[in-house]
Design a protein around this nucleic acid. Structure first.
Lengths: 341, 341
DNA sequence: TTGTATTATGTAACCGGTTACTGAAACCGG
DNA sequence: CCGGTTTCAGTAACCGGTTACATAATACAA
């Protein structure tokens, strides 16, 4: 079905205002000075006809889409909603449309034509969330000078694509500092996130740095890969206990992991925080609802989205963007570390 | 900044293949039969030039955008991510772009021009989430026969706009049945959601129906408005207790409410489920993490999104859509109602 | 007063597709 | 072998904006 083509065009407005189409266009885009008189006649005609410029025509003629694309591998996770809210608030405020595409979902049965879902064809710039685009595509985009900003992922070497992320390292360092300094922990286990994940690497660095600063030697036995899911973390802790490795605290790569950790500790009758202090990362919605409530690090997801979008819009406007933006995190002290009771 | 215009066009392909542009277009859209020979030459030329049709040109000429718009008041809530995932999976699979706009965020400082953010101008159809568009706009869209599907909201009288929602009523009825039949509850308090919310109304209906079916008379003292937030529910339960109203179960309009309910009961030293059984609605992520784990009703948010999108695409293709789609919910039994220990 | 710079506006080509209309060739039955 | 279909392909107008270029009108300097 095709919508009836009844909307008024720039030529209708021109006719009614008694001027040429060029004048209307100039008025619309403020691209040249108009006499006060003309401007008023144009405005009157426009309101009269309830004129609204046709985006496709505009886009075709000007080679601008007025849209920003967000590409991610998968729509999911708790960070997702605030991130999107941040992005949307800026695109809206700046008058851009927001296009979303998940690269995980299968492509349409496209027949013979190759349709690039989100690209320089239908957007003015791309927001790329962790690994949503492979390096080949990033290189291609860089080569054609298409604006791109990476989120929670740093630029491949040499490409110099601006990126926005959070203080993974110092955030995790602060928590571990806290465990050591306030709760006198000495043997802190670390449940890593996914091995190749950049966030997870930064968090490990912070962990190691804190240990080092406090003269505690790094013990590889205390570090386990946990993914970002509770089941893996649960298994990891059970294994730790089974192998008889002693620890007085567990710091997890994210809050989901903490769920599994708490479960495993409960089953092993280790009390939290008396026997083992626990801390997470993310400040997920449920963190305060766990028993005991989870000490963790709050990631400013909404700001990440907003800031990345602002940077992208700068690029689109031809201004230069900040290559690395690292937003601060906040430690949230609750009971699982031993504070407050 | 404008991307350099270096991509190949339909005319380049035509030249290379030694045919006319019309032929290329026909091949692209399968709009007329081509001889096997020509088809092959066209395909070769297309791959050779890495041709990808320009969406704006296509859209301008055909008056189709190949995009679907999602309008909502606010980006937030736990249902949001799965809903969006459902929508995106279908739009992707069917080759549509997905545009998102929140009507809550303020419009750009648009100057003199009126820009309708998401409309028949830049989409082929609109998915409208609860109250994101007012009735005036819905009427306008209906009048110009623009495809619209409502989500979790029924069509204003007379408009006959297709809608997709969940079994609020029977879901809530089942839970209350369960409380009465399995746990012998007689005085079941109901913490309502927001007063004008359609979901919340349906859930109340189910509550009343279940009472009626079991010969329990409806007691207005046991029904309190709670919004969809835990703080209000917390206050509501405190008030109930303070007023000395006795109850042996609380059914809440959603899981967030249940958090406040549990807190208030804990503070009043009423044991869950021994003294008071508790049940919620939504099966939020945290439901299983509460103490005790919450008995609730699982809403198929992802399917809602997918189904609404499918209906919309039908409309876009000129087929007829189902006016009312009500997706089934599933009762999730955990411990807060008294089951399993 | 005349020549020139400046400003406001118009004309028409163009962006890259789609498609109505037209025509040539192939096919078919009698 | 001929008139009538059917099939395949080309020409060019069109979608609704933008903008390079041209021009008329006005301002200004000498």
């Amino acid at each position: 079905m095709t919508t009836s083509r009844n909307a008024s065009t720039i030529r209708d407005v021109a006719r009614l205002a008694g001027v040429s189409v060029a004048t209307i266009s100039r008025y619309l885009n403020n691209s040249a000075p108009l006499s006060a008189d003309t401007a008023e006649r144009v405005q009157t005609a426009m309101t009269e006809l309830d004129f609204s410029p046709h985006p496709a025509a505009r886009s075709l003629a000007s080679n601008k889409t007025n849209a920003i694309g967000l590409v991610l591998t998968e729509i999911g996770g708790e960070f997702y909603t605030p991130l999107l809210r941040g992005i949307e608030s800026v695109t809206s405020a700046e008058g851009f449309d927001l296009l979303i595409h998940s690269t995980k979902t299968k492509a349409p049965p496209s027949g013979p034509i190759k349709r690039r879902p989100l690209s320089e064809n239908n957007t003015d710039g791309l927001l790329v969330f962790i690994d949503a685009l492979d390096e080949v595509e990033l290189i291609r985009l860089k080569k054609v000078k298409f604006p791109v900003v990476l989120i929670h992922q740093s630029s491949p070497k040499g490409l110099e694509i601006p990126m926005v992320t959070i203080e993974n390292q110092s955030g995790s360092q602060k928590v571990v500092d806290h465990l050591i300094e306030e709760h006198n922990c000495k043997k802190i286990a670390f449940i890593q996130g996914p091995a190749n994940n950049e966030d997870s690497k930064g968090r490990e660095k912070g962990y190691r740095l804190s240990l080092k600063n406090h003269g505690i030697s790094f013990d590889p036995n205390l570090v386990v890969i946990g993914g970002f899911e509770s089941a893996q973390a649960y298994e990891a802790v059970r294994k730790l206990i089974k192998r008889g490795i002693s620890f007085d605290a567990i710091f997890t790569g994210d809050d989901d992991n903490a769920i599994g950790v708490i479960q495993a500790l409960n089953e092993a009758s280790r009390r939290i925080p008396e026997d083992v202090a626990v801390a997470g990362f993310d400040d997920s919605l449920f963190a305060r609802l766990l028993t005991p409530p989870l000490t963790t690090v709050k990631a400013p997801n909404e700001q990440v989205g907003a800031e990345a979008t602002r940077q992208l819009i700068k690029l689109i406007r031809g201004e230069s963007a900040t290559l690395q933006t690292v937003l601060p995190v906040e430690m949230i002290i609750r009971r699982s570390c031993g504070c407050k009771q």
